[in-house]
Design a binder for these strands. Structure first.
Lengths: 338, 338
DNA sequence: CTGTTAGCGCCTTCAG
DNA sequence: CTGAAGGCGCTAACAG
């Protein structure tokens, strides 16, 4: 195990001082080219490597961004992280990843960890259960900018990047109507989260535009999971409610619904059409293949990181609010091919 | 933006010194309970938060682990990260994520970044093109332990966690034999990668054990993709070679094979049985559902992190070598139900 | 153009 | 049981 080479070591070898070496390495204008060359050569020869911990402590900048997601196991979030990283890396930032596992408590602790680690900024998607976003304001108060994406809560003051959920839900529902379906049910997500609320509203707007009268029993508030889809369908069947199409709030819910319909020997898309939301990878390969709304996850990650960068650079206005909307793109497949 | 509260601030408010406050907060035995209580109260009241950057600089431990993966976008790796995090979090470690995007150059730079950030350890899966693992030895020389997982290269000296591919492939093939299939073909992966080589060998071993004579035309080297599976099957059909079962090197290849078989109106599993490898999510939902070998990705992540922890704790022997094998578990579904 | 000096916030000997 | 003092490695005034 080699001893770490410091600025002092280079300075000693060149009979100069740490300050000069530091400036030379960061290409400071007031250092002679000759000295810069000498320093660069010595640094390389001695195997010098900047200790970013020390730099951070001194400069107050860590060049690390904290990323909070429910789970790395969900391809939607994996894809977003992928997008975030592409932009972050280009600007010299590294990512610290924290999984909240849909627990508000872990989310809170995650923020604490990130603040203790002095990250330069935070990108986050709320958990399903997050009602209270005080901990994010906590970060803002300490001067750590936050950008939310996808699940953004009800904040009017935290910058965020979201899909155009209302629009997307409306399109999805309209597509079902175009395909000739009329009794279109909706399995929603937790209504305290705006994204799920907006999808519900978009769904109702599409019905109303087509003069289809929405009925209360057509809606069940699920919790964004396979089981949620299964339960909703069995609930309806038990009560002799027969949809001829289902708009599921996202793909896993749609998958659950498909399972339940198949188990009840109901033909998709002939008897019941079904469309999801997210464009998860599996949708393309299941039988029947799943119609869905593509959320352009990688783009969302890129935009979120870009927005954070803008805020980090815009020193005069670190607390500004901005919302970016990403258009959701339809992907129609077999499950709605009536 | 609040000023950061430091140990000094707490010390001032209690008319004591930083040293005492520091010790009180870390529950040092030689501090009176009374003082500890006072310090704790003041810290809480003032909103003190440990600055981990400073602690790291001073102590030489960062409690951050660097994770290098090809892409967060691939569910296999997302799942591994998920497993890593579960163990890491329980031990107070955070994860720094770096994507290599299958580029050896990015892998090399990633290691540099992690070393500059003074991570306590590195977990990595090699890129497809990595031939030269000098950069990992670089890390080891500086005293930063490394544990590889899944794609581990040919190292004899870096600790690693891998699936038991030979064993898994053998079981998969044996299962086909038990189901009564005899002409069992194999669509493989790039043979320069050890994991795919081992699966090929396991397949042949199972045949030989059952006294089935392997024939050269039964094997096609694919490239781990849906197209690869489609192409292999059409190739065989074109040459009037009819397998009665196929062992595909992984699930996407199996999926391609299924597509091609369906297109040729061949019944699965009646005419041709098929088994994959990986247990990707979609396998459960396609028709027929896909038999496969479960790689237990989350477990792999957990084991890798656990191994790293062991090494970090075992100070006397930081450069030891160890290899953990994870058993691949069969998941038999409709595609092989003869 | 380069050197001196003074910390960033924390921990840890060494002395009381 | 607590205080004093030094330093982790780096950067950024302020002086030459």
């Amino acid at each position: 195990m080699k001893k770490q080479i410091t600025l002092q070591d280079i300075a000693d070898s060149l009979q100069t001082t740490r300050a000069t070496v530091s400036r030379a390495l960061s290409n400071h204008p007031s250092i002679s080219q000759e000295m810069k060359d000498k320093v660069a050569a010595a640094a390389k020869k001695m195997g010098y490597r900047n200790n970013r911990i020390a730099t951070s402590l001194r400069s107050g900048k860590s060049y690390v961004i904290g990323v909070l997601i429910p789970s790395a196991n969900i391809s939607f979030f994996g894809s977003i992280v992928h997008g975030i990283d592409k932009i972050a890396r280009d600007h010299g930032y590294s990512l610290l990843l924290i999984q909240t596992e849909e627990s508000e408590e872990k989310e809170r602790k995650g923020i604490e960890t990130l603040l203790a680690l002095k990250v330069d900024g935070i990108l986050a998607s709320l958990t399903k259960e997050t009602k209270d976003d005080l901990h994010f304001h906590h970060a803002l108060e300490e001067g750590t900018p936050v950008v939310l994406f996808d699940r953004v809560g009800n904040n009017e003051d935290i910058p965020c990047v979201v899909n155009n959920d209302f629009q997307g839900a409306m399109e999805a529902t309209a597509h079902l109507i175009e395909q000739g379906y009329r009794n279109i049910f909706h399995i929603g997500g937790p209504q305290h989260l705006p994204i799920f609320q907006k999808r519900y509203q978009g769904y109702k707007a599409a019905l109303s535009e087509a003069k289809i009268r929405f009925q209360e029993e057509w809606f069940i508030e699920g919790n964004v999971s396979i089981e949620s889809g299964e339960n909703a369908v069995s609930e309806w069947l038990k009560n002799d409610l027969m949809p001829d199409a289902i708009f599921a709030v996202e793909d896993y819910t749609a998958l659950g619904a498909i399972n339940a319909l198949k188990a009840a020997n109901i033909k998709i898309p002939e008897q019941v059409g079904i469309i999801g939301f997210a464009n998860e990878l599996f949708g393309k390969y299941i039988t029947p293949s799943l119609s869905t709304m593509d959320q352009q996850t990688e783009l969302m990650g890129k935009q979120a990181m870009q927005l954070l960068l803008d805020i980090l650079q815009d020193k005069t206005n670190a607390t500004r609010f901005e919302q970016k909307n990403i258009v959701v793109k339809p992907v129609y497949r077999a499950s709605t091919n009536n």
